[in-house]
Nucleic acid binder design. Structure first.
Lengths: 351, 351
DNA sequence: TCATTCCGCTAATTCGTATTAGCTGTTAGT
DNA sequence: ACTAACAGCTAATACGAATTAGCGGAATGA
């Protein structure tokens, strides 16, 4: 059973008393249908294969065929960091599910991606990218030059998340943050809010920029943006003080963790959410919600699993027809939550 | 930049006015140090490489070298199922971390693993296993025959989790459930418990069997096993009734989810945990605990990340020296929790 | 009887890289 | 002056499977 040397078609051929070519023909039957192998010979070969447990070397195979049913998954950040397990995991779950049903394995490119200087790069010197038939790209910290290289080149890829043009249209499956943000702003307006605050960075990543732009556009002419705080990992105490000073009746957060910290602090300070102050979160991890780790914020759910699934499917489609550059935006479901209420009219009690 | 055909060493050779062999020698310099290439020629070749952006095809490379710095990860169950995300994810986090620092990519074998009948198999007909240099195996539902095949064969593997011999010693990194279980039983004995109940299956998987055997051994001659319920996904109502009838003062669970259901039901029935009845959980997911999704059970923490890390490291070591068959058992940290207390002496109040 | 067709198989080539053996021309050694 | 050594390269081959061209023999047709 355990030969010291790997079993090859030549070994099978010898056992069956035929040539290596015949073994290959038997294995890939029905292809070139003309020169059929008679059942007798065929059976001899198959018996030898069965007896030895031979399987074709996928590397040699892909060397000749140029494809090996593997999808690469390139991530700019580690795919399973403890701190943000909830960020990548849903994507990967969707990707794995789709890959499995499409008959593809998954190659996580973790190591091959670093260049000499330790930076993550798609086109590393290892060229390991080529091990996979195509590649899915995750991560908010995209390198524009590399993206442009992808667009210009002929390597099949799909970005998970919307991407601006990079010397050409980028093939992606994203989520429609702009539409969802617009809806939430609309809801706040309907409830009577006019003074808005925004806490969260405004770019440059598309996912962040979309929230910001969607927010601004939806507000235009209908509400007033009285406060913006673009500092990452801000101090809740300062944030609360500034929001109060601004007179805003509702705060929009681009990042759920910021909202959690803010919410906790505000409540500790005796600020009633949402009767004194409304909170809206633009997006959020799905899992943190289902697990009820914090209060149910008014927000929208990013369909990460579905994005992963569709991105994988799109990649496989691209392998078949590389000429298309589809761009898909999935709808984010609005989560009503419990942190958006009409503004408190007797606002003086707050100050 | 984007050539229609893939760039090869022959192209580079032509550009630099040398032979393909020379290009290869330049690329793998310092190896066969004797026949050195003069800086002048070397530079010409490197320039051509720089100009064209050539990278060696990793498939052809591994065809010749027989290794490609990829670790396979074979899972019997899907690696990212939503329901048990907390089970595999920690392993994968550890594996990825180690793989990255060791310079290996990760190949998740999701699709290649199914045979005609749809069963997950390590030695599938695809032989895709060979794409990776070696393989880590996860999953509690091990197939004994396949395991024996691994042991007998010369394919480098490491099992995550202890495994019984399968026609030979199995290479693994596991957790010492027996020791941890013994400790917990000891703590219960110290607190005065004498009547024990056990709820959870007793095999055949090693991880489960270890808990059961450890439990029995630790109890031997020191306490009485008054009730065993080996039914999976049991009904908490029936479980509670039977435990009460048995007169047990402490219940050991092999599965945290069972314990949660039991705990919830018992509390709803007015049974005080742990003053009326103690609960001990043998093992548990780490994340569900840190996230505080339920009360803090007295249990032990399975070092899943560390198991993943060490398994990956062991696999790489095996690639270098396949003759060793190391078996590592990591210690589980005991979590004091709040569900183990001295038994209630006026037990009649319970019945 | 000779040409044609078809069957059953194989030799040879290909994929892209690594590696070894060895060729050619120069220089050093005696 | 004739060998020896050596530098600087290249030809050739291997890796394992897929594929194409084609060979030898039997069967069929005219």
């Amino acid at each position: 059973m355990s030969a010291s040397r790997r079993l090859t078609q030549r070994d099978i051929a010898q056992l069956a008393g035929v040539s290596q070519a015949t073994v290959s023909l038997v294995l890939n039957e029905a292809k070139s249908a003309q020169g059929r192998i008679p059942p007798e010979t065929r059976e001899r070969v198959l018996k030898a294969i069965r007896d030895t447990g031979y399987v074709a070397d996928p590397i040699a195979r892909s060397m000749v065929k140029g494809a090996n049913r593997i999808l690469g998954v390139f991530t700019y950040e580690p795919a399973f960091p403890i701190a943000q397990a909830d960020f990548y995991t849903p994507f990967l779950m969707g990707i794995e599910e789709a890959a499995e049903s499409l008959g593809y394995d998954l190659l996580l490119m973790t190591a091959s991606a670093r260049d000499n200087s330790g930076r993550k790069r798609i086109f590393g010197e290892s060229g390991r990218l080529r091990l996979a038939d195509g590649c899915l790209i995750l991560g908010s910290q995209f390198d524009r030059d590399e993206l442009a290289q992808l667009v210009a080149g002929d390597y099949p890829y799909v970005a998970v998340g919307r991407r601006d043009d990079a010397g050409g249209a980028v093939r992606y499956v994203g989520a429609d943050y702009i539409a969802a943000t617009t809806t939430l702003v609309g809801q706040a307006l309907e409830k009577g809010h006019r003074q808005f605050a925004f806490i969260g960075t405004t770019g440059p990543a598309e996912s962040i920029a979309d929230r910001w732009r969607g927010f601004q556009n939806a507000l235009k002419g209908k509400g007033e943006l009285v406060h913006v705080d673009a500092i990452e990992n801000g101090d809740p105490a300062r944030q609360l003080a500034e929001v109060r000073a601004s007179g805003a009746s509702v705060v929009f957060f681009a990042e759920v963790l910021e909202a959690v910290a803010f919410d906790n602090y505000a409540q500790a300070q005796g600020v009633k959410i949402p009767s004194d102050l409304s909170i809206v979160v633009l997006g959020s991890g799905t899992r943190t919600h289902t697990l009820r780790l914090h209060r149910a914020f008014t927000c929208y759910a990013i369909p990460r699993e579905e994005m992963g699934r569709q991105a994988a499917a799109m990649l496989v489609q691209t392998l078949l027809d590389p000429s298309q550059v589809p761009q898909v935006l999935l709808t984010c479901e609005i989560v009503a939550g419990e942190t958006l209420a009409p503004p408190n009219t007797k606002k003086d009690s707050l100050k």
